[in-house]
């Protein structure tokens, strides 16, 4: 061991650690906020209106429900293969909406990137897209359901709509990462806009584009489950809806949850794998 006593500890330590971070305005604001939150939380818990519910019993019941769901998954209304097939339908919904969304967003993203398009155009597209994103996917599906009727058509259109908005923002920001000077260099050789886009901009941002698309695919998968339940689009979400709202069958709810969980994990693993392979390649 090397003797390092006396170097550092005494010479360099601050005289008083408590004053290391002085109580300035920002620190005061944070502390006050935390205090107010703590007080309101305690007040709310103390004065909560239980409405005659026996809290200890309610908690026990909830636990027993959770036990039924997660420890006794069983199905009365569909076989494992049917469940699998329903998941594939949900996956199809997610895939289709991501594909449509990705293709449309690629072009909108190019038009929304400040290094590729005139300023007025990027502003118009960015604000329209921001508006679409501000409304949740499920609302878009319900809006389109007015025209298309509840079902898979409305779900595809609604989810695509939101995917386009989401991916346009993500893509355009990936494109903007590329230095303007590289684009200028190719323009200076006499290349035109499309050539520059496909030879420099997209190859440079390909890994970003893919990871954003995978992320959106995962979001669309969980959205597709919700659409099955809420908008009557087919798939595993509809089985979940039937099991919980129609049959009140907690065993089935558990099974469906496990199905979805398993697929989500598989998707995650696949996506991570593909991404790392692409990163190595590109």
């Amino acid at each position: 061991m090397i003797e390092i006593k006396g170097i550092g500890t005494e010479q360099f330590s601050s005289p008083n650690l408590n004053t290391a971070k002085p109580l300035d305005r920002a620190a005061l604001a944070i502390r006050l906020t935390l205090l107010v939150l703590a007080v309101t939380t305690i007040y709310a818990l103390l004065t909560i209106n239980a409405n005659g519910i026996d809290m200890p019993k309610a908690i026990l019941d909830t636990l027993s429900t959770l036990r039924t769901i997660f420890f006794q998954p069983y199905s009365y209304h569909f076989t494992v293969w049917q469940g699998f097939w329903e998941i594939v339908i949900t996956l199809g919904l997610a895939f289709l909406t991501t594909l449509f969304g990705g293709v449309i967003a690629l072009f909108l993203g190019l038009m929304a990137a400040q290094n590729l398009a005139p300023k007025w155009l990027t502003n118009v597209i960015k604000s329209v897209v921001a508006f679409i994103r501000a409304v949740p996917s499920i609302l878009w599906v319900l809006i389109f359901a007015v025209a298309a009727g509840l079902g898979s058509t409305a779900a595809v259109i609604g989810l695509t709509f939101h995917s386009v908005a989401y991916l346009t923002k993500a893509y355009s920001e990936s494109f903007e990462d590329l230095d303007r000077s590289v684009i200028e260099a190719l323009m200076a050789t006499g290349a035109n806009w499309w050539q520059v886009v496909f030879q420099a901009v997209i190859p440079s941002s390909a890994t970003y584009l893919l990871s954003w698309t995978f992320l959106r695919f995962e979001i669309n998968f969980s959205n597709a489950v919700a659409m099955g339940a809420a908008a009557g689009a087919a798939g595993i979400g509809f089985d979940l809806f039937m099991a919980s709202e129609f049959y009140f069958n907690l065993h089935e709810v558990g099974l469906v949850t496990y199905f979805i969980l398993a697929f989500a994990i598989i998707l995650e693993v696949l996506a991570t794998n593909m991404k790392s392979r692409l990163m190595k390649q590109a």
């Binding site: 886009v197 496909f198 030879q199």
Partner: peptide, 12 residues
């Protein structure tokens, strides 16, 4: 790129 048609340039 400047010597090529748009499509040939786009596809490389």
């Amino acid at each position: 790129l400047g010597h090529k048609s748009t499509l040939a340039g786009v596809l490389g």
